[in-house]
């Protein structure tokens, strides 16, 4: 056990006199225990990276770069191309972000700038309810209620846009209730609470003096938000959006039930698709050998993508928080 060099009020006081110039064993043991528990986070993250890549290595080596990024996924012929899944993951997450971000930021502004304090707490409770509904319940509701209902809407939109150049290729024929867009919708609902609460934390740090300054110049509330609140919290909100993006990409069960389970790269958002987490959830049970290795490899991709997104998000939030403290 190495001697502890840390500045410690208890020790500093003790070392002045003849009493207790070394800390009791139990005291040091407790510190080491606490450190071990903290380091467990690092250990788990490293273990995730190492153990999953190890299992995936046979896929990485046999498929090669072109095999991994091909669109052919056929377990019968041992061809495992990840492209359709990567595409579906990105598309559904982007749809979710486009829907969820304006809603979340608006709710965050509502909570911090519009509603009086004693009303904002009940609204926060309601948002928390949304966060605590399990993913599988969203999926169950999605597949049994939302999908049959939204099918007709997709079909009528598709017949409405027939022949219009861009819209036709996005929302055109071959619609299905379970689709990229349905998955995006449900993901949007699921990531709204996290984006809202992170943006709210950022927006709450806007100095009152800035806001009062804007009001004193005669600004309306909306002008105050654009002039004083937004420049201050931009960076933090971008970070919150990235955290939401990471969540949307990793969300498994709800997407697995409503995405349509059809691996294809298509511009048709109302058509069925697939995503990385949902293919793992649906096919891992019957997979073995090379097939299993490929599915774990998809998990490695997902892990890498979400880690990068989260690192970027935290870095952006921290940088903007530092800048704002300095300002």
């Amino acid at each position: 056990m190495s001697t502890v060099t840390q500045a410690d009020p208890a020790n500093a006081a003790g070392s002045a006199g003849p009493l207790a110039h070394r800390r009791p064993l139990g005291d040091r043991a407790f510190q080491i225990l606490a450190l071990a528990c903290g380091l467990l986070v690092l250990v788990i993250l490293v273990l995730i990276a190492v153990s999953t890549s190890q299992q995936a290595s046979s896929w990485f080596s046999t498929a090669g770069f072109s095999g991994i990024f091909s669109t052919v996924w056929n377990p019968a012929t041992n061809q495992f191309g990840a492209m359709a899944y990567l595409y579906g993951t990105v598309i559904t997450a982007v749809i979710a972000i486009i829907i969820a971000v304006p809603v979340s930021v608006a709710i965050a502004l509502l909570l911090t700038q519009v509603v009086p304090q004693r009303w904002s707490q009940p609204i926060v409770y309601v948002i928390d309810l949304l966060a605590v509904i399990p993913s599988v319940v969203w999926g169950l509701w999605g597949i049994l209620v939302l999908v049959p209902w939204i099918q007709g809407i997709y079909a009528s939109i598709a017949s409405g846009v027939t022949g219009i150049p861009v819209l036709d290729s996005l929302f055109g024929s071959n619609t299905s209730g379970a689709s990229f867009f349905t998955a995006g919708l449900i993901l949007a609902v699921m990531i709204t609470p996290i984006i809202t609460s992170l943006s709210r934390e950022v927006i709450a740090t806007v100095p009152t003096i800035d806001k009062e300054g804007a009001y004193a110049l005669g600004a309306t509330r909306w002008e105050m938000i654009r002039g004083a609140v937004w420049p201050h919290s931009q960076g933090g909100v971008v970070g919150a959006v990235l955290v939401g993006l990471g969540r949307a990409m990793g969300e498994t069960i709800a997407a697995a039930l409503v995405i349509g389970s059809s691996a294809q790269v298509t511009s048709r958002l109302f058509g069925p698709g697939y995503s990385i987490p949902s293919v793992i959830a649906n096919q891992f049970g019957e997979a073995s050998g090379e097939f299993r290795s490929a599915l774990i490899g998809l998990g490695v991709f997902l892990f890498a993508i979400t880690i990068v997104i989260n690192l970027a998000a935290r870095a952006i939030v921290e940088r903007s928080a530092r800048r704002m403290r300095g300002a």
Binding site: V41, I44, L45, I48, T52, S135, V243, G246, R247, M249, G250, E251, T252, P277, I280, A281, G299, L302, F303, T306, I307, I309, N310, A313
Partner: peptide, 8 residues
């Protein structure tokens, strides 16, 4: 680590 997907 809070951002690591549950499936992973």
């Amino acid at each position: 680590m809070t951002g690591v997907p549950s499936i992973v």
